[in-house]
Amino acid sequence: MPAESATLSDDTVLDFLNTSASDETRSNEYFKSDQHVLQWMQANRLITSATLPSFTEGTLVNAARSLREAIRKTLFQRKAGLRVNVGLLNAFLMQGHYRLNLVRQSNGQVRLMHEYGHSTPEQFLAQIANAAAEMLAAGDFTLIRKCESDTCSLWFYDRTKAHRRRWCSMARCGNRRKVAAYRARRKGDDGGMA
């Protein structure tokens, strides 16, 4: 998975969904091992090195892939205006254990902290399941979009001021479309002069 793909959606849940993607040349599976899941969670600031759990090899990646597919199915259902199968995510939510704590920061401000259990892979992934449930219940699905490129499967949350974002990123798909349109115009201009 290209580095910019890890955070280009402007939403952690969609970034999690984008860990399995395809483009015009291949399918990409970022979660190939437990270590990849841990690296993704660290890169997205969901865990620190102090909170790294130890599970039986393969159980975390399997749980992450299952959660991702549950999110994918429910997101597609919600986006299409269909009845959402809440059981898919509820299975993960029921296994999650967390508590809330108020923490005083060095500047005197108080911050609410969620502390998630990590006895099982499902507990460890509960914060992603919670965020997905929040998105399904309260997200603005007019702003949750798939990249307009026919060959890209990445999703994003359009947080631009005008809400006109069309591409997963301009560097990836937007630029390709612009170059293709430019070439088509040039070809048309050359054809008209002959």
Rank of each mutant, 00 (worst) to 15 (best):
Q39V: 08
Q42M: 04
A43P: 07
R45W: 02
L46C: 05
T48G: 00
A50Q: 04
T51L: 15
L52F: 07
L52E: 08
T56F: 13
E57P: 07
G58I: 03
V61W: 08
A63W: 12
A63F: 15
A64M: 12
A64P: 06
E69S: 00
A70R: 13
K73Y: 14
L75M: 08
R78K: 14
G81N: 03
L82S: 11
R83K: 13
N85A: 07
V86W: 15
V86H: 14
V86N: 12
V86T: 14
L88D: 02
N90A: 09
F92A: 09
F92Q: 07
L100F: 15
L100P: 12
R104T: 05
R111H: 05
L112H: 02
M113D: 06
M113L: 09
E115Q: 07
Y116L: 06
H118T: 00
H118A: 01
P121Q: 02
E122V: 01
Q123R: 15
Q127Y: 13
A129M: 15
N130T: 15
A137C: 14
F141L: 02
I144E: 10
K146E: 11
L154A: 03
W155Y: 11
D158F: 03
D158P: 01
T160A: 01
T160P: 00
T160V: 02
K161N: 01
K161A: 02
A162S: 07
H163P: 09
W167H: 06
W167A: 10
R172C: 10
C173M: 12
